[in-house]
Design a binder for these strands. Structure first.
Lengths: 162, 162
DNA sequence: CCTTAATCGGATATCCAATATCCGGATAAA
DNA sequence: TTTATCCGGATATTGGATATCCGATTAAGG
């Protein structure tokens, strides 16, 4: 039960896309080099982000990816559900219907109590992920990181979009 | 990012072990038949539960598994961490140290902000799972289920331990 | 119009963890 | 001694995560 690398990658990437000059974009190749991650695979993850409305893409020469909305309106939940899929992480296989004491299907009026307990915990998890906005993460980052590092990144971004 | 079947299996199994007469146990084979699940694999999951102190085992003829403590003191978190391992579900690969603007290792005084945000959400998830006790799940189940079904199960249990 | 740079999506390959089986050893009851 | 059971290592199988490649499409610029 582990979250895939795509989530880590795209979460970091969103923090870079967030400091782009308005109207500009960054290519998958540039982003892959920035984090030293495989570009072809990253491309797939970015397509998922796009289909879920987290980022926008511009095709053709000079194109690339940029955020589809403001950093206050993008949360970790958006990224996780885009990359990992809709989150019911606990898969109920209805084993209560199995075996010598199995319930008949028509007797299952209420949802399985074990599944309900997990669903309840997962809803709390989703809420917690939704409370983590890209804005709050970047605020932490700027507070923790030295100004030289931020300048390094700003310079690299400018170089790519020039 | 899905939870393994072992968690669903053992969660249901704990609700059965909970209604055992004191001092009795149920064998893996009996439990596997009760839920129509593969016994050899279930055996592995039960061993994990035992190593983490959720259940106790009695070896030899007439042996089997039983709960190691009361239903109030067993939570979904106990079961999930026993079966799935320690829960940091988000794997931080420190990609902030990669690429042209990568941080030097000694400059990483603070933990990665993306990882921290996930860690914070996961702690809330753990708390939510810990709040779900076996007792509360079984209370739901007895409230929702017809008394015939409960009798069916009680009868089967008695038959196994006879 | 042509070249170049970029995303899009389908097909495919690889790797690893989840799933599943088997067996020999230890243990205890009858 | 036989039988039933857990224990743990070795091993197979399966499926999802990871990764690559390529043809199609789109757009900028000469």
């Amino acid at each position: 039960m582990q979250i895939g690398k795509g989530v880590e990658w795209t979460a970091h990437i969103c923090t870079i896309l967030a400091i782009l000059p308005p109207g500009k974009g960054l290519s998958v190749d540039a982003l892959a080099e920035f984090f030293e991650i495989p570009g072809a695979y990253l491309s797939k993850q970015m397509q998922l982000l796009r289909r879920h409305g987290v980022v926008e893409s511009v095709r053709g020469k000079g194109g690339g990816y940029r955020l589809a909305r403001g950093v206050e309106e993008i949360t970790l939940l958006d990224i996780v559900s885009a990359i990992e899929g809709p989150m019911p992480v606990f898969r109920c296989t209805e084993i209560r219907q199995n075996g010598p004491c199995g319930l008949k299907r028509k007797d299952c009026l209420h949802p399985c109590e074990v599944a309900s307990a997990f669903a309840s915990a997962e809803q709390i998890y989703r809420d917690a992920l939704q409370a983590q906005t890209l804005a709050s993460i970047m605020q932490q980052a700027t507070a923790n990181s030295g100004p030289e590092h931020l300048l390094d990144i700003a310079e690299w971004v400018q170089q790519q979009t020039a």
